[in-house]
Design a protein around this nucleic acid. Structure first.
Length: 840
RNA sequence: GCGGGCGUGGCGGAACCGGUAGACGCAGCGGACUUAAAAUCCGCUUUCCCCUGGAAGUGCGGGUUCGAGUCCCGCCGCCCGCACCA
């Protein structure tokens, strides 16, 4: 029997879909609209398995929605700006533009081989002026609306390469190329006022009921709305500074005040205190990453100043400069309460400061604090007029008193910080700003957009080549006409991904989008991507959409109505140590021969170390190239395997076994189709009809919930049932239905089988099957029989049988009789149509 | 350090709302077909035991319940994010 010829089928059907423009979305379609989107890829060079998994999931949703009668928008594009292109330029001497465009061409060809139902007519790449030029216009609109501002902010500075580093380029506090100790340095940078939208973004989460709870929770915590007290500490030596606290109840437990190293007061004190100046310098060592700062040893320096306790002028507290206080959060200053904050406790122990309990659980009132701060609920102690109150009441009382006496006020504080979008890098959207000595900061007039990124640049030295370009930066000031300079910073690539889904929906030549057309498609009905984007990308895109709404550009509040976060594709790693102080050398799976007892490098036949199963990453080289697998097994088998086994939200550990099973499944379905080229005569087989309709209901529900692994299992069961069934009209109809249910997952096979079976048109255009409710009802059920909750047996009964009958039949079971041994049950629990539990 | 998640056979996983744990697939073993191989088909496959039956079992330790993989409390391990990776 001939096998399913995947190569011929893929070519044939992909050409037919293209010619018929099957997946081109029509703006003017009368059908209800559905927007299915997967996070667009960075063109790193080759598609990897994670992309295949992501786009296969989206494709199943898109094809199913289309069959269900929706006009589906399912586009694809390229998140094409970013650091890897600059790294390639430095390492291989290619220019970032050519490198990126070649990668796009290669990856587009790979995606096309997979037969995705994509509308390629809407393809975009963020590195092209016809995309980023419109982004520059939107930036200027936001600037005009007051949503953009400039201020100083810290970056990672490599003092040897004299360049700014990304957090990723700082390894153990050192520059990744130079190895120099990194410092924090301040630069003037552009910011978007995302904090203006903190409440909207937080409250908006409530309505996102088709988002995973965990993502909503993470965003909620990230925004971090808290209410507390802001008050002024009077410095005994003169002056004052503000602090913010969420725990005003613990004010009597305060034993010190701490300010950030770059707090104005710290700077002022350092002027005539060389030791403090030194300490502040020390605080600037290291990168800007929060994880690094917060895991650093907590260090403080006593300024010698003291502040007056606001509730008792008789108490004075020492003022420290501390490396864990961030100027960016709150007021850059805090009071330390060691009894009820672990970080403060560690600090107090280190600098021998008093530790006092002011909140206690019942019975703990006089228990001293040892190594662990008490952060639980309780009542106030050692706190004078607050004693005996709950901590919650004490909070309100202190705030009320502060407001009445005028030394503080209740404020709402956010953990969320404004979005710094300036990057001291080349391969990004140029910020459309001109610096003029006379006029200052001048926006580029819209008529002069796009500000085109020059591609004749050199990477022979570190840093941003835009700064060294001979002519690009020279420009006349649009305001006064004098010679001026272009801004050489580019925009964060997150700005590119903050509105691409709008450009997909509407892409006029002369403006970013048409609001009416875009609003027809938006919000995205189903967005699918990695959970690693749960906060930053998704929050920025939500902000950008709301900002557009505020400035009247687009009447959409939330960009993504439904979100699904897929797990990553993981793989074990192969490496060899390179010796002291050097990172190991990594090897790609293609270069390694894997056997059951180890792994060997093909090149030299020597063993390599097998490492943990981790996220596929280029740096660890544990990346699988789908091309070879695609050639051998075909797109349908690869797609099928991507959906099998692992639940889509969980990580998928790649292994070559399993793809074989997917290939066998494709062949099994093909054989079933070949067996049924013409409809069979004979009687209807109700049992098969029931199984087919149960499968329709289950598979439809599973796809709807994106539980593809369950849909796959149901289809295996259906195939098995059809194989065993006797030939006849029910079996023939069942095979037709099977082909339709398989079509979103393995579309080439389905089209080929559909044609073979003499069905009309294309299966991708056929209406999705609907289950007949009458065929979904069981008339018999299996009743489990338990004794004290342990299974003793089971029997079948008519559905809806009454309790007494079930009880009697359960008691009559031989195993139950034997176990009871004549004793009378104390109690019998009957769950209708389910089980009988006998309690002895 | 902070925030979020996950943990079930040899492996990936299934189990509606607290009601028969292990569906389905992979791997393995045995058999059929074949000169042979491939392909295909059939059967077995959580562990243990005194094996026509019984006991234990969902990371660990407790708890609630007639009944817990599912709910509660306390641990352990792994993974993701932390604002300049995309």
């Amino acid at each position: 029997m001939p096998r399913f010829d995947h190569q011929a089928a893929e070519r044939r059907w992909q050409a037919i879909w293209d010619a018929r423009e099957s997946f081109v979305a029509r703006d003017d379609s009368p059908k209800p609209k559905s927007y299915v989107l997967e996070m667009f890829p960075y063109p790193s060079g080759r598609i990897h398995i994670g992309h295949v998994r992501n786009y296969t999931m989206g494709d199943v949703v898109a094809r199913t929605r289309r069959a269900q009668g929706f006009e589906v928008l399912h586009p694809m594009g390229w998140d094409a700006f970013g650091m890897p292109a600059e790294n390639a330029a430095m390492e291989r001497g290619v220019d970032p533009g050519s490198w990126t465009r070649a990668n796009i061409a290669a990856m587009r060809a790979q995606l096309k081989r997979l037969g995705f139902a994509l509308d390629w007519s809407r393809e975009l790449a963020t590195c092209e002026p016809d995309y980023y030029g419109h982004e520059q216009a939107l930036f200027l609109d936001m600037l005009a609306a007051g949503l953009v501002y400039r201020r100083e902010s810290a970056v990672n500075w490599d003092p040897v390469d004299m360049t700014v580093l990304a957090n990723e380029q700082v390894i153990d506090g050192r520059g990744w190329r130079s190895g120099a100790l990194v410092e924090r340095r301040k630069l003037n940078q552009w910011f978007l006022k995302i904090t203006d939208f903190a409440d909207d973004l937080l409250d908006g989460l409530q309505g996102l009921d088709q988002w995973p709870d965990k993502v909503r929770l993470m965003q909620e915590n990230w925004i971090g709305r808290s209410t507390g007290l802001r008050f002024a500490f009077q410095v005994a030596e003169g002056g004052a500074f503000d602090v913010f606290t969420t725990r005003p109840d613990t004010l009597f437990g305060a034993s010190f005040a701490a300010i950030a190293a770059d707090h104005p007061l710290a700077q002022q004190c350092a002027r005539d205190n060389p030791a403090l100046a030194d300490f502040i310098l020390q605080c600037q060592a290291g990168g800007t990453a929060a994880a690094d700062i917060e895991t650093q040893e907590k260090l403080g320096f006593d300024t010698g100043l003291s502040v007056v306790h606001p509730l008792d002028p008789g108490i004075s507290l020492p003022v420290f400069v501390a490396n864990f206080v961030l100027m960016e959060y709150g007021t850059g200053a805090l009071f330390g309460c060691p009894g009820h904050d672990q970080r403060d406790l560690d600090f107090a122990r280190k600098y021998q400061l008093p530790v006092l309990r002011v909140v206690a659980a019942e019975g703990e009132e006089s228990a001293p604090i040892h190594d662990e701060a008490y952060t639980g609920a309780g009542r106030m102690v050692n706190s004078r007029f607050l004693d005996g109150m709950t901590a919650e009441d004490a909070r309100a009382t202190v705030i009320a008193r502060a407001e009445a006496e005028g030394w503080g006020e209740a404020v709402t504080q956010y953990r969320l910080r404004d979005w710094g979008v300036s990057r001291q890098r080349y391969w990004g959207t140029p910020i459309p700003i001109i610096h003029c000595d006379a006029c200052g900061v001048v926006p580029v007039p819209k008529a002069d957009l796009p500000v085109i990124l020059p591609e004749d640049v050199s990477f022979d030295q570190p840093g941003n080549p835009l700064e060294r370009h001979p002519t690009w930066g020279q420009v006349d000031c649009p305001a006064c006409g004098a010679a001026a300079r272009r801004e050489t910073d580019t925009l964060d690539t997150f700005t590119n991904s903050s509105w691409y889904f709008i450009r997909f929906a509407s892409a006029p030549v002369d403006r970013p989008f048409d609001p009416a057309v875009a609003a027809q498609w938006l919000p995205v009905g189903q967005y699918i991507g990695g959970v690693e984007h749960a906060i930053l990308h998704l929050l920025y895109a939500r902000f950008w959409t709301r900002a557009l709404q505020r400035i009247g550009a687009l009447d959409v509040a939330e960009p993504f109505a439904g979100l699904f976060t897929q797990g990553m594709v993981t793989h074990e790693t192969y490496s060899r140590p390179q010796g002291e102080g050097l990172p190991p050398l990594w090897f790609a799976p293609d270069d390694v021969e894997r056997r059951s007892d180890g792994a060997w490098l093909k090149a030299d036949g020597e063993a390599v170390e097998i490492g943990r199963v981790i996220k596929m990453s280029k740096s660890k080289k544990n990346v699988i190239d789908p091309d070879a697998i695609l050639g051998r097994y075909g797109a349908d088998a690869v797609r099928w395997f991507m959906l099998s086994d692992s639940p889509p939200e969980r990580d998928l550990a790649w292994s070559e076994s399993g793809i074989d099973g997917a290939w066998r499944f494709v062949q099994r379905v093909w054989r079933l189709a070949e067996d049924h080229v013409t409809p069979a005569e004979g009687a209807v087989d109700l049992k098969i009809d029931r199984q087919v309709h149960r499968a329709i209901a289950a598979v439809t529900g599973d796809i709807d919930k994106l539980q593809f692994n369950k849909a796959v299992a149901r289809l295996y069961e259906l195939v098995g049932a059809l194989e065993r069934a006797t030939p006849g009209p029910s079996r023939f109809a069942g095979v037709i239905t099977l082909i339709q249910l398989v079509a979103p997952m393995s579309p080439h096979l389905a089209e080929e089988a559909w044609a073979l079976l003499g069905q009309h048109g294309l299966v991708c255009d056929a209406a999705w099957p609907v289950a007949d409710p009458a065929l979904l009802i069981d008339d018999e059920v299996t009743i489990a029989v338990q004794l004290n909750g342990k299974l003793k047996g089971s029997f079948t009964a008519a559905k809806g049988a009454d309790k007494a009958a079930l009880e009697a039949e359960a008691l009559a079971l031989p195993t139950v009789q034997r176990s009871l041994d004549g004793a009378t049950p104390r109690k019998i629990i009957v769950v209708p149509d389910r089980l009988v539990n006998i309690v002895a």
